[in-house]
Deep mutational scan, measured.
Amino acid sequence: MIVFVRFNSSHGFPVEVDSDTSIFQLKEVVAKRQGVPADQLRVIFAGKELRNDWTVQNCDLDQQSIVHIVQRPWRKGQEMNATGGDDPRNAAGGCEREPQSLTRVDLSSSVLPGDSVGLAVILHTDSRKDSPPAGSPAGRSIYNSFYVYCKGPCQRVQPGKLRVQCSTCRQATLTLTQGPSCWDDVLIPNRMSGECQSPHCPGTSAEFFFKCGAHPTSDKETSVALHLIATNSRNITCITCTDVRSPVLVFQCNSRHVICLDCFHLYCVTRLNDRQFVHDPQLGYSLPCVAGCPNSLIKELHHFRILGEEQYNRYQQYGAEECVLQMGGVLCPRPGCGAGLLPEPDQRKVTCEGGNGLGCGFAFCRECKEAYHEGECSAVFEASGTTTQAYRVDERAAEQARWEAASKETIKKTTKPCPRCHVPVEKNGGCMHMKCPQPQCRLEWCWNCGCEWNRVCMGDHWFDV
């Protein structure tokens, strides 16, 4: 396979590697080409510095992935760790964990309700045991953590790749202090920090972006993250068709209702045909949960890209028209025109101005929308079919299609509260000796007794199943 190397943020060049090629071997190839010592090179990928003893497969490097290699003399205490030698983080029983690669970060837990604080980093599902597709590297999971809308060759929703760059020099040479644990960490600028490894760059702020994971991409090709779309790892039924499908869209209502993408497309087109989208002054033209839940309008309007190009163009047109109407304007009634106009409040005669090729020149009556006339309008008909009709959803289907309910059931079956801080902690095999993952707590306690870890627990039921 081919990976592209950008040395000291210059133009990239291809390097041929195998899945079992080590990072140090990659350094040696680059060092020979650039005429520099291999031990002064640092390989940066997806916000993480890659260790010498890791392989291309370990690092989730795919065909035509772009890695950054910078030349920086080692500072005291760094060289041993980078070589894969006596790194205290690798000691058996050590409590410190390697910062998780962005290629394996899962933010789907952050669609849980606000009262489930902490689960994004504490609760991990076991539903990723799908067998890898044919042709994928051994052991590589097909679980997708992110979804994007690819405006490039795909023109559809695709699995996405999370990447990070330095907000100062805009190069992907920043190593994160810690990985993101929720969508806010990724979507809110300057929320996460790190250290830029580019020479002479003092940058410390992280800037995240997404790429389409279905095809090789260049540095400049980015895609918009659709953070309401998630892999259906909890096997929730769709609120409309009641099938279990994946991926799904999880509405931001209190129940976190789930809808499959085909039904979401149908829901949007139906509402669009009836012009029953909601115009929100802050958000724009949007839709609420299909069950009509309060405070559930979709905030990231790129989710409506699921409509496809033709329907999305209609959505944008109707949204612009609705904006004009909300501002007190009118639409030209001549067939084939429909231009938005903003006449004076007491102006009865409205002319669709033909300047700049935008208007048709038609003069019409503001009251009856017919060709302009003197005197009273002959008839004014009330528009028919403008009443909002509820999208029919079966109550039982709505009850079963809740992301929140599956989460709470998982928590109930696989977790116990920490005796000190009461945060839910998952036990997935292993011994009875637990350690609270909350940095402010870190209590060592017994899963069996529910009390602080002691010699009695150690001698009596340390390794009970």
Rank of each mutant, 00 (worst) to 15 (best):
H461V: 01
G340F: 05
W447T: 04
T103A: 13
L112Q: 14
A230P: 02
G114M: 08
D274G: 04
G12D: 05
P159M: 07
I259K: 00
K161H: 09
Y391W: 15
G385E: 09
R420D: 13
W74Y: 10
M434A: 08
L272Y: 01
S246V: 02
P419N: 03
E221M: 07
N190R: 10
V15C: 05
H200G: 15
G357M: 14
A363C: 12
L301W: 05
V111D: 13
S167R: 12
A371I: 13
V465D: 15
E399M: 14
N356I: 12
A172D: 15
G338I: 04
P14T: 03
H373I: 02
L307N: 04
D394C: 07
A31N: 01
H303V: 09
R366F: 07
G354R: 09
I23H: 01
Q440I: 14
Y147F: 12
T270S: 06
E382M: 14
V164Q: 06
S110F: 05
Q178T: 14
W445I: 03
F381T: 08
S198Y: 08
F13E: 04
I66Q: 04
A138W: 10
R245V: 08
S286Q: 01
E321L: 07
Q57D: 10
A401T: 02
Q400P: 05
A398Y: 08
G429K: 14
V456L: 15
R396H: 12
Y391E: 06
D219L: 07
M458Q: 15
E399L: 12
G355H: 12
T55W: 02
K151F: 14
E367M: 11
R305V: 07
G328S: 05
A206W: 00
R271E: 05
G135F: 10
A38G: 05
E98D: 11
R42P: 01
G93V: 13
E444Y: 05
R42T: 12
Q438P: 01
R128W: 10
F304N: 00
T231D: 09
F4D: 05
Y285M: 04
C293F: 00
H124Y: 05
C323A: 15
G340V: 04
P335S: 13
Q326W: 05
L297D: 04
R392A: 12
I142Y: 09
C436I: 02
S145N: 07
W462L: 15
V67Q: 01
G213F: 05
Y318N: 01
P333K: 03
G459C: 15
C441D: 00
I229Q: 02
G77E: 11
T414I: 09
C332D: 03
V67N: 00
H433P: 00
P288G: 14
C260Q: 01
T240Q: 15
C196G: 01
V70W: 02
V117P: 13
P180M: 02
V121M: 15
T237C: 10
Q100K: 12
G430S: 15
K408L: 12
V456N: 15
H279D: 07
G139F: 11
G359A: 10
F364I: 04
R334T: 13
N356V: 06
A46Y: 05
C182E: 09
V425C: 12
G194K: 01
L61H: 01
G160K: 00
E376F: 08
T204K: 11
P419I: 07
